[in-house]
Design a binder for these strands. Structure first.
Lengths: 253, 253
DNA sequence: CGCCTAATTGAACCAATTCAAACGCTGTGG
DNA sequence: CCACAGCGTTTGAATTGGTTCAATTAGGCG
C-alpha cells in the first residue's frame, strides 16, 4: 500500500483505488480482515460487511478526514498513507493524540460523545475504508465475530497511551517512539527497519511532549551513536536492540 | 481473586453489601444502570443481566482486585471505594494509569490482550459488581442496548488520557485533576465541592507525572490562594471557577 | 532564483526534580 | 502509658534536563 508517490502536492492521485476488483486481496491489510475472515468470505454476512464499506480518498497532506465537533457517523480504516489526530485548545495550541498507519482505525473515540473529539489530518496522501457505525453495530449484533472485533479494537486502543506515560527522558521517549513505529510497520508487512517518517519533527515532539529542538537533538545523537541512519524523514534503524534497550520501560514486554 | 474476606485484618467489613434486596435502587449508581433501564427492568433480559453479575468485596486498602497477567474473564464496576490501576515496569517503577470512583468500570483494557495489562489496587475499602465478560458479550449480541453501552464505555475511556496530555505546568495539572475528580463525584451524586482524596500525594504525583513534593507545594499554594481548603486528604473546593480557569486547557469545553 | 517552512545547532534560562530536613500521624511494643 | 519506628506530608535549598531564544542551514516549489 502506501501510495507510490509519497510526496505531497501531486496534481492528481497517482494510483486511485484500483484494486477494488480484488476485494479479498485488498482486505488483506485491512483492520477488519480478521472479522471478515471470521464472518466467512463466502457467507452472505460478508456481503453485508462489504455493503457498509465505502472507499474514500485520496486526501492529501494537510487535509482533514474529520474535524472536532463533526457528528459521528463512521469509523475509518487507513488503507494507505498516514494520519495524525489532534486536539486544538481554545488558545490555539495543538495537541497531537496519535499517528495512524495503514491497517489502523481512527474515530473510535467518537462513539461515546457522538461527535468527533479531535481532528484527523492527513500527513501524506491517504485512502480509507469508511465504515458506517450504525450499520457496523447492527452487523455486530448479528455476527459475534464482528462484535468481538470491535471490542478488541477499542480495548487495544486503550493500551496505546503508554508512550506518553511516566516521567521519561527525551531519549527514552524518542527511542520508544521509533521502535513503536517500527513494530507497527512490521506488523502490517512493511519493513520494520527502514521507513519514512510522515510526520514533522514538530509533530513527533508535540506527541511526545517535547520541544521540536529536543527531538532533533536526540535524533542527531542517535545517529552519531550509530543507532539509526536518518536523512530528513528517511529512517533506517541500525541497532534495534540498542534502541529497544533505551526505550524499554515504555515498550511492551 | 475476590474472596469475601480477602486476607484482611478486620474481623468483618463495617457495612457488608446490605442493599441486595433492593436491586433497582442499588443499581442506580451502577455503571450499567442505563443499560439495565434500556433493557427494561421488567423484561426477562434483565434477569439475564442480573444473572451475570456477582457482588465481590470488600477489598481493603492495598489489596489487589486483579494483577498484571491475570487471565481476563470479567470487568468490574466499582460500587464503593476507590481503585487505582497501575503498571510496574521491570525496574520496579510504578506508573499510575488512573483512579476509579463508584460507578466507574475497570478492566476494559484487558479485552484485547485477554490478560490484565495492569494491576488494580484498592485505595480504601472497596466493593464491586463483577460482570463475566463472555456472558456480557453474549448478552450484548442479543440486546443492542447492552452492546451500545459497552461500546460507549470503551469509547469514553479512550477520551480519558487528556489529563496527562500536553506539556502543562504543575499548577494546570493539579487544578485539572481536582476539577476532574470533582465533576466525576458530582456526576455520581456525591458532593463536587467536598470530598476525600483516597489516594496519596505520591499517587497523584505519579499519575500526573510530577514529583510528590511538587503536588504538595501546589496544593499548599492553592490553599494560600484560597482556591481550596485542604487538611490531610480532606478537600474542599472554595473557588471552582478559579481552579477551572487554571486547568482549563486540560478540561472539557 | 528566491521565498518559505522545516530542521539543526548553540547558549541562556527556568520549572520541576532531587536532595535534605523536619513534622505529624498511626500503630507497636516495652 | 509513653517511647519509638515507619510512613506520608510539608517545606527549603541546590541541581538539572528540557525549553526557550536565537542564528544558521537545508529543502521544496512557485
Amino acid at each position: 500500500m502506501q501510495s507510490k508517490h509519497p510526496a505531497g502536492r501531486l496534481p492528481d492521485p497517482p494510483n486511485p483505488i484500483a484494486d477494488d476488483g480484488d476485494e479479498a486481496h485488498f482486505c488483506g491489510t485491512c483492520a477488519f480482515s480478521s472479522a471478515c475472515v471470521a464472518a466467512g468470505y463466502h457467507k452472505p454476512d460478508l456481503a453485508a460487511l462489504q455493503c457498509l464499506v465505502e472507499h474514500v480518498g485520496p486526501f492529501r497532506a494537510g487535509e482533514h478526514i474529520f474535524r472536532t465537533g463533526d457528528p459521528f457517523r463512521a469509523i475509518f480504516a487507513v488503507r494507505g498513507g498516514t494520519v495524525k489526530t489532534r486536539m486544538v485548545d481554545k488558545e490555539g495550541r495543538e495537541q497531537v493524540l496519535g499517528f495512524y498507519l495503514p491497517g489502523e482505525v481512527i474515530g473510535l473515540n467518537a462513539i461515546y460523545p457522538e461527535h468527533f473529539p479531535c481532528d484527523a489530518v492527513a500527513l501524506d496522501t491517504t485512502f480509507f475504508c469508511r465504515f458506517s457505525f450504525p450499520a457496523m453495530s447492527a452487523l455486530a449484533s448479528r455476527i459475534p465475530a464482528v462484535q468481538q472485533h470491535l471490542f478488541r479494537m477499542l480495548s487495544k486502543e486503550l493500551g496505546t497511551a503508554s508512550l506518553l506515560a511516566g516521567d521519561h527522558s527525551a531519549d527514552e521517549r524518542v527511542a520508544a517512539f521509533l521502535m513503536d513505529l517500527a513494530s507497527r510497520y512490521a506488523a502490517r508487512g512493511f519493513s520494520g527497519t527502514r521507513f519514512h517518517l510522515s510526520m514533522s519533527r514538530g509533530d513527533i515532539a508535540n506527541y511526545l511532549r517535547l520541544a521540536a529542538e529536543t527531538v532533533s537533538r536526540v535524533l542527531s545523537r542517535f545517529r552519531i551513536q550509530k543507532l539509526i541512519q536518518i536523512e530528513g524523514r528517511e529512517l533506517q534503524v541500525l541497532d534495534p536492540k540498542g534502541l529497544r534497550a533505551i526505550g524499554q520501560s515504555l515498550l511492551p514486554e
